[in-house]
């Protein structure tokens, strides 16, 4: 059994300035993530997804004002006791807008920035940068300005700049929402590789549910600040009624199977597919 690297214990968070009638951004959330797990976080807008990310990397409570109860542990230590800079080295963060994250004049400097701030020795920084450039396939951009790159390339550099701090956990909050389909797919491939080959623990917030379904081990579904479903893709998508109620899509192939089953009585009783390929395999049996 892999060790727990991230744990929320009865976490409730309320942003400062929330109106009296307004609800808490997170309400009594408890969950734990094991080393090497690939977790997808889904939910409607304002369900608490970004808040959950901010608690993983310590932006809450360090940079946001509000009331926190409960505890968040990273590698067994309470985030309240870990300085933000140090936590940045343990939990890497990537956001929707890579331009907001990049600041240096070249990709090379961008990759050196994080570990330099953590006072990593020079030789070690260079070694990490060389490795990261290969893993991420960005060696060709080494001397270019990050701002001259396409959105997909920028997002890869943003991920790479976090990687050189060698975090164990990577938290990505809608990393593909400003990318075109090619950029989106390349970022998904990179994240998958970091998970499968490098063994990184991944917390991914996205709206691209069909794409996520191909990759994640586990989905956590948030609604109004609470965890309402938590399980494998098959488990969570079997609760189609819940998805309908909270207003998010299940993959189209899952919906087709469900309609065939419930409305047309033409499903053979097997598990509903969650990816296009599973559906096509199924159809091929009779085609």
């Amino acid at each position: 059994m892999a060790e727990t690297v991230l744990e929320f214990k009865n976490v409730t968070w309320r942003y400062e300035g929330t109106p009296k009638k307004g609800r808490n951004a997170l309400e009594d959330v408890s969950l734990s993530v094991k080393k090497g797990e690939y977790v997808g976080i889904i939910g409607a807008n304002d369900a608490g997804k970004s808040t959950l990310c901010r608690l993983c990397n310590g932006l809450i409570p360090n940079s946001f004002n509000g009331d926190l109860s409960g505890d968040v542990f990273v590698n067994g230590r309470n985030i309240k006791d870990i300085p933000t800079a140090q936590l940045a080295g343990e939990v890497g963060s990537v956001f929707a807008d890579p331009e907001a994250q990049l600041s240096q004049i070249s990709v090379f400097d961008e990759l050196a920035f994080g570990p330099s701030n953590l006072e990593v020795p020079r030789e070690e920084i260079i070694k990490r940068m060389e490795e990261t450039m290969d893993i991420m396939g960005i060696r060709a951009f080494r001397d270019r300005s990050p701002f001259s790159l396409s959105g997909g390339e920028q997002q890869k550099v943003a991920i790479a700049s976090v990687m050189t701090m060698t975090p164990e956990i990577l938290v990505l909050d809608e990393p593909t929402s400003n990318l075109d389909p090619i950029g989106t797919e390349s970022v998904f491939m990179i994240i998958d590789e970091l998970n499968k080959k490098e063994g990184m623990t991944i917390i991914l917030v996205e709206h691209e549910i069909e794409l996520m379904a191909q990759f994640v081990d586990r989905f956590i579904v948030l609604d109004e600040g609470q965890v309402i479903l938590d399980g494998t893709p098959e488990e969570v998508f079997s609760h189609r009624d819940v998805f309908e109620k909270i207003g998010i899509f299940v993959p189209t192939v899952t919906e087709i199977a469900s309609i065939a089953d419930k409305k047309y009585g033409s499903w053979d009783g097997s598990k509903y597919p969650i990816t296009l390929n599973e559906m096509l395999d199924k159809i091929d049996e009779r085609l």
């Binding site: 087709i256 409305k263 199924k282």
Partner: peptide, 11 residues
């Protein structure tokens, strides 16, 4: 779902 049903491709 309806077309797949009519073509007998699901069951």
């Amino acid at each position: 779902a309806k077309l797949l049903t009519e073509k007998g491709l699901l069951k």
